[in-house]
Nucleic acid binder design. Structure first.
Lengths: 220, 220
DNA sequence: ATGTTCACATGAACGCTGTTCATATGGACC
DNA sequence: GGTCCATATGAACAGCGTTCATGTGAACAT
């Protein structure tokens, strides 16, 4: 339809064309799910609602995803790009700052701000027991594990490694340090989301104190 | 039955006796729910299963609790005592240490260790959107907000205040600092529980790095 | 002793969930 | 034109939280 192939190649085509179509539909489902989260929140992310919004039957979802968590993993991978964009933006904004720690601080702040600004998306990505983007139903074995997520963490990890390498931060395993920073940021976002009735100090102050303390503790 | 009151007081008694009985039942339900979590994990905590184990009908639960979250709040209050005990134990163990920061460090480590050792209980307490111990059905308005939880956080907050007061930690609002420490610890536990497949560094190393970094950043 | 009242308890139902499966359907190949 | 097979579906299953009309039995008044 898109490109009328020679008849001689027609034998090899169908499989490809079919697979293409399947992946298109799969992607369409993921996008519908994303729209659902953005518009109606985390709780709206049910198989029936996603199917209805995507215009397919509920059972059809199980042709593209092993189960609900696999679908959510695919959605998470999509949502990650929002956080990734915020990361890149923060890093760019801190480019001119003379303080070598500015970029790392900007990443920390961007993470917390993004999480608090997008709690429903944050819940999908970081507060749901998701393994990574699992493969289609027949393919059984899971495939690529959330590339966007890895890219995002890599950004943090590389920045830490850079600062350790240049001696700005005291000698340490960048992997461990990056994980610790991530954990600290996640804890703040997650607790504020889960326990909103706790008498929290102002969020700005809290976020600043956490980032400052970590940076001070890590500095050489 | 327990104490045959004079007939003249009989008019006032029933209400009291009845209330007592109701609270006993309520407590019995909470204990059944706790046993369920301990033995079968977080997912087993359903209204039907709790009711069955407590020996009452499912509908009866709604006489004692407004909804499922209220029941879980009561269970959380019960589970908190485990963490509180771990906190007290850790504080006592650090009593002889010459380092004035030893107790705070011990609290941080105890928190993370307890959470990782009791993930199902941790999920009930800290990873479920719970408001506090809500009142009975008719009473409508919620009552005491998780006393054990408050006591636990108070322990951390007081220790921070003590160290700030003695000049061991740099001047800061103990409330903000305590919240930040809590958030950091929570993040580590929560992420390890939610994303067990992530290629984490060894837990001991992670926990130590996080605690050391925070202490170093907070020290005067 | 009898009648009345009312807090407490329940079985059954409602609408929702994730998931499975027998049954179509329709295009690709022989 | 007939066969096959990937794709799609409606219906069903078991479970969930929650509600409500219906008991039931002890406490009180007469």
């Amino acid at each position: 339809m898109e490109q009328p192939a020679p008849v001689s190649e027609a034998a090899a085509r169908p499989a490809r064309r079919r697979r293409r179509s399947v992946e298109d539909r799969r992607r369409q489902v993921v996008l519908a799910a994303r729209r659902l989260v953005l518009r109606e929140g985390f709780e709206a992310l049910t198989m029936r609602r996603v199917a209805a919004l995507a215009g397919v039957s509920t059972a059809a979802l199980y042709l593209y995803f092993a189960d609900r968590l696999s679908l959510m993993a695919a959605v998470a991978d999509e949502l990650f790009q929002g956080l990734l964009a915020a990361f890149r933006e923060a890093a760019a904004a801190a480019a001119g700052d003379p303080d070598p720690r500015a970029r790392l601080r900007a990443l920390m702040n961007a993470y917390v701000r993004w999480g608090l600004a997008h709690p429903d998306e944050y819940r999908v990505i970081f507060m749901t027991p998701i393994t990574g983007v699992a493969g289609h139903r027949p393919g059984a074995a899971g495939v690529s594990a959330a590339p966007s997520g890895q890219a995002t963490f890599a950004l943090l990890q590389e920045e830490v490694a850079r600062l350790v390498g240049t001696g700005v931060l005291r000698p340490a395993d960048p992997q461990v340090v990056a994980e610790a920073i991530w954990a600290a940021g996640h804890g703040l976002v997650a607790l504020l989301i889960t326990k909103p009735q706790f008498p929290w100090s102002p969020r700005e102050e809290l976020s600043r104190t956490l980032a400052d303390t970590l940076l001070r503790g890590l500095s050489a």
